[in-house]
């Protein structure tokens, strides 16, 4: 294993971003695409699951509070069917309980809104490295 010094891993892995705030999705899509990341978006859990069924993504960034199936339930579904995919949870409503619940359900990390984009990109890179390392087994 080596310590890569760039966004190499994040650029090799496809990324899915799930949030019901469409404006936020659009902004993040633009920003992350400019960094060379292959990103697609979904506006809720069911769309995300369909997207995963069609083409499983390595890293998923998902909002905790979404109408319908919330982020934690969606995380549990994704980890059940695609255990090697790494999920980063986002939330605008910080709560230790929901943070820990996310981690117990298999989230890779937890990020607070408003997003520090640099921090999120680095978390995506770390999640992508883990995903690639697990793929090799």
């Amino acid at each position: 294993m080596t310590d890569t010094d760039s966004l190499d891993a994040a650029q090799k892995v496809s990324l899915l971003m799930v949030d019901d705030e469409l404006e936020f999705l659009e902004t993040m899509h633009k920003h992350l695409s400019r960094k060379g990341l292959q990103i697609t978006t979904a506006d809720g859990c069911s769309t995300a699951i369909k997207a995963m069924e069609a083409d499983p993504r390595g890293v998923i960034v998902m909002d905790v509070s979404m109408p319908g199936i919330d982020g934690i339930q969606c995380l549990q579904k994704i980890k059940k069917h695609w255990p090697k995919s790494e999920v980063i949870m986002l939330t605008g409503h910080a709560s230790i309980q929901s943070g820990v619940q996310g981690m117990q359900s298999g989230a890779f990390d937890y990020c607070l809104k408003p997003i520090d984009t640099q921090e999120l990109v680095e978390k995506i890179e770390l999640a992508a490295r883990k995903f690639l390392a697990n793929q090799k087994r």
């Binding site: 910080a94 709560s95 230790i96 943070g99 820990v100 996310g102 981690m103 117990q104 990390d109 937890y110 607070l112």
Partner: peptide, 14 residues
């Protein structure tokens, strides 16, 4: 306070 406590707690859990 909530945000920072959550960052600490989640990372300690990890």
């Amino acid at each position: 306070i909530r945000a920072k406590s959550t960052v600490v707690a989640v990372n300690v859990f990890k």
